Computed example of a mutant assay.
Amino acid sequence: MPFIRQSDYQPPRWLPNGHLQTIYPSVFRKVEGVVYERERIDTNDGDFLDLDWSFSKYDFPKGPGKKKLPLVVLSHGLEGDTTRQYIIGMVKLFNSNGFDCLAWNFRSCSGEINKTLRFYHSGATDDLQTVLNVALSKGYEEIYLIGFSLGGNLTLKYLGESGENLYPEIKKAIAFSVPLHLSSGSSKMEGWEDWIYTTRFNRSLKKKILEKARYYPDQINTSNLSKVKTLRDFDNYYTSQLHGFKDAEDYYAKNSSINFIENISVPTLIVNAQNDPFLSKKCYPFELTERLENVHFFAPEEGGHCGFYQSGYNGVLWSEMKALEWITRS
């Protein structure tokens, strides 16, 4: 499919660059009216995942032919959770348009440290598989996937790994602000213009390592925390080691979704703004996606990282409207 460069997204004039378009909605946007019902599920390795459900008030006619509403499964970004504005904003819009929503928290992201030595990472598709198994066990026959940033990479990798063997209930997917090429994306975050994001992520990640080390003192070397200055450092000393990879580069190579998207078998839209401060040039695979049948690549000039804030529209983001349009069109 040909990639799409042109976009109808227009940021407010007072958000003139990718950094402001990233930071403003993250800090100042407030979404109200979403009520979650939490479900804790067990994983096969003795851990747990916290799932947050939000059910639409829309009802099909009652009777013998009644079926479940369609379900949207949402995966958040690095050090995010289901309360982030880009998650609950999407949940609110889809609930109001007749979709149930399942937003899931990655391991250690729901407010409680997870039980096992491992955490979560960009390619942990086994956990997404577990979440989808729960959704299918509840009788959902029409499922759509939405991922953001790290959760977008995980979603695309899952779809590519599954290929033609994907559950038939999964109909479409859309991913925003995706670091498709993890290594170069990590290098991009080492620049001075991204230090504020890197510092924030590492502060949160280091805190979790210290907490995890209380339970696994013989398996986690906290002395390496002083050496962590970049995300690549963290992935070298911790992400890779806790999840069975040789080093950060091995972790990046084996989990970058750009290596999996050619095998995606359902209509999938990737939306990466060209002024996204997190993404490298390799995260804009124009030539690759141009020859893919099921993957559409949309590269609007503006939007930032998980941003796409717009004035008016009752507080709904451009990205949320785009997702609804993509999923509901025939």
Rank of each mutant, 00 (worst) to 15 (best):
Lys68Asn: 12
Val72Lys: 13
Val72Gly: 15
Val72Leu: 15
Val73Asn: 09
Val73Ser: 04
Val73Trp: 04
Ser75Glu: 04
Leu78Val: 08
Glu79Asp: 01
Gly80Pro: 00
Gly80Glu: 06
Asp81Ile: 05
Asp81Asn: 12
Asp81His: 01
Thr82Ile: 01
Thr83Lys: 00
Thr83Gln: 00
Gln85Arg: 00
Gln85Asn: 12
Ile88Ser: 05
Gly89Met: 05
Gly89Tyr: 05
Met90Arg: 14
Val91Gly: 09
Val91Trp: 07
Val91Cys: 14
Lys92Ile: 05
Lys92His: 13
Leu93His: 13
Asn95Arg: 12
Asn95Ser: 14
Ser96Arg: 15
Gly98Gln: 09
Cys101Met: 15
Cys101Ala: 15
Cys101Trp: 13
Leu102Asn: 08
Ala103Ile: 09
Ala103Glu: 12
Ala103Trp: 11
Trp104His: 14
Trp104Pro: 11
Asn105Phe: 13
Phe106Ile: 01
Arg107Met: 14
Arg107Lys: 14
Ser108Trp: 08
Ser108His: 10
Ser108Lys: 07
Gly111Val: 02
Glu112Val: 08
Glu112Asn: 05
Ile113Asp: 05
Thr116Glu: 15
Thr116Pro: 05
Thr116Tyr: 09
Thr116Gly: 14
Leu117Cys: 02
Arg118Glu: 14
Phe119Ser: 06
Phe119Arg: 02
Phe119Asn: 06
Tyr120Pro: 00
Tyr120Cys: 07
Tyr120Gly: 06
Tyr120Thr: 01
Ala124Trp: 11
Ala124His: 15
Thr125Asn: 02
Leu128Thr: 04
Gln129Lys: 09
Thr130Asn: 15
Thr130Arg: 15
Val131Phe: 04
Val131Lys: 03
Leu132Asn: 11
Leu132Thr: 04
Asn133Met: 13
Ala135Asn: 07
Ala135Lys: 04
Ala135Tyr: 08
Leu136His: 07
Leu136Pro: 00
Ser137Lys: 09
Lys138Asn: 04
Lys138Thr: 01
Lys138Gln: 07
Gly139His: 08
Gly139Leu: 12
Gly139Asp: 12
Gly139Trp: 07
Tyr140Cys: 06
Tyr140Thr: 03
Glu141Asn: 00
Glu141His: 00
Glu142Tyr: 05
Gly147Ala: 08
Phe148Ile: 08
Phe148Trp: 10
Phe148Asp: 05
Leu150Ala: 01
Gly152Glu: 11
Asn153Val: 02
Asn153Arg: 02
Asn153Ile: 04
Leu154Thr: 10
Leu156Thr: 01
Lys157Ile: 07
Tyr158Glu: 08
Tyr158Leu: 03
Tyr158Ile: 03
Gly160His: 10
Glu161Asp: 03
Glu161His: 00
